[in-house]
């Protein structure tokens, strides 16, 4: 464990907590893409298959349970909670996210570190996470006024993977044989997808104006 990865995990945790805070306290999911939440639930479900078979550390197991529990409960809230579901804008959240799942699965079957079920599922979860934010970014461009919590949620979600990139650089230089091209490239693609959001988020913070993405 290194400071970059720990900071990345904490940032990821913060993004999940911000989203749960928004949904649980103000009972609203305005501006939140259900499709991105469903993709993330699938990412964690396919990435943490080793939850009960491989014990790495208490921290690792605890965080996996938190990410699994929060992602599925957020999907439940937006889909079934009688108040929250009313604020879900399904007419705007129209990204065909199923079109993301199949290509990621096919790619994982083709390009992986080892052709075993768990390794292919793990690779699939990496590719899927790289594109999981797309429905949310599309929804943000359609939603004129982005509320602070939603903006913070997306910012933290993008920042966590950027910190992971620093973690991979650190591990590459400190651990012999630590080479994971698949992880690195999908993590880089994921972070680059946030590039324009980060730009507008920083601009809105610097000029102290409401966050707005150009249509």
């Amino acid at each position: 464990m290194n400071i970059f990865r720990f900071a990345g995990d904490m940032t990821h945790l913060a993004s999940v907590l911000v989203l749960l805070l928004k949904i649980h306290t103000i009972k609203s999911c305005a501006g939140i893409s259900l499709k991105t939440q469903e993709l993330y639930a699938l990412v964690f479900a396919t990435r943490y298959l080793d939850l009960f078979t491989d014990y790495i550390s208490l921290y690792n197991t605890l965080m996996k349970l938190i990410f699994l529990g929060s992602s599925f409960s957020i999907v439940w809230y937006i889909r079934y909670h009688k108040i929250v579901r009313r604020s879900y804008d399904k007419d705007q959240d129209t990204f065909r996210h199923y079109f993301l799942v199949l290509p990621c699965l096919l790619l994982a079957l083709l390009i992986n570190e080892k052709f075993t079920f768990r390794e292919v599922m793990w690779t699939f979860s990496l590719y899927l996470e790289a594109v999981a934010i797309l429905p949310q970014l599309v929804l943000l461009q359609r939603t004129r006024n982005i509320d602070n919590l939603t903006g913070q949620y997306v910012f933290l979600l993008g920042a966590y993977r950027a910190l992971y990139i620093l973690n991979w650089i650190y591990r590459y230089f400190t651990e012999p044989h630590y080479v994971h091209w698949i992880t690195w490239i999908s993590g880089l693609v994921q972070t680059l997808l946030y590039a324009d959001f980060f730009y507008y988020y920083f601009q809105s913070w610097k000029n102290n104006v409401k966050l707005e993405l150009p249509a």
């Binding site: 990865r5 995990d9 990821h12 080793d50 078979t53 491989d54 790495i56 690792n60 965080m63 996996k64 990410f67 080892k114 075993t116 768990r118 390794e119 793990w122 992971y164 973690n167 992880t183």
Partner: peptide
């Protein structure tokens, strides 16, 4: 490693 499975990151 854990029976060949070596992913220790979240």
């Amino acid at each position: 490693t854990y029976n060949g499975y070596h992913h220790d990151e979240l």
